[in-house]
Amino acid sequence: MLEARLEQANLLKKVVDAIKDLVQDCNFDCNDSGIALQAMDNSHVALVSMMLKSESFSPFRCDRNIALGINLTSLTKVLRCAANEDILTLKAEDAPDVVNLVFESAESDRLSEYDIKLMDIDQEHLGIPETEYAATISMPSAEFQKICRDLMALSESVSIECTKEGVKFACSGDIGSGSVTLRSHTNVEKPQLNVEIDLSEPVALTFSLKYLVNFCKASGLSEQVRLCLSNEVPLLVEYALSNNSYLRFYLAPKIGD
């Protein structure tokens, strides 16, 4: 059986909120290392990969592999019933029909309990090879969100060009064009504002802003976001969570006609 207790319901609320517009039904794969999720969006150009390590829960118990097929709209409805600071416990039997969610207030004696019916989801799994990326950019997640939103006002696509000069986000559309360039930057007092660019070779790729703006819904999960790029491979957008847990998004690049 599965029993996984999260100190704060907020973590799961934010994760589900960040992915629910990309994927609708998905399996939460539970085993002794934690709870993982991998799902492609309908158009098969974006992939969500979440890993909540067992260390992110206290306690965490999962005796055997269990796939919880959950509709994220249903999960969102139930998670809305939890206060952000509630303690959240996920429970399921070994061959479950439902997943049980218990919300406990740390400050009062309230205990809420919900069951969500599970679905049989036959999901295609993509193998993601370990990739040595040509460019890795760490930057404030709020900054990345602003850039994506700003450029989306002008265009559907953004080109991300990384050279030793810095990283340039550029777009052009019907009303004109725009760009934002960032250089490496270290803020000793506020390291969350650092911009770090690790480059082994120059990269230039074009991506759909609609997806990037969608990924940025995860900004509340982490002060920093990591962008990993190599020519002609999908972009990796990673929000690191505590205990080596993560929320990753992959996006296939656009190509010329």
Partner: peptide, 14 residues
């Protein structure tokens, strides 16, 4: 730039 390639072209179905 118009065509968005599918992820399956990059990752393998397992």
């Amino acid at each position: 730039y118009s065509q968005q390639l599918a992820l399956e072209l990059y990752f393998y179905l397992s």
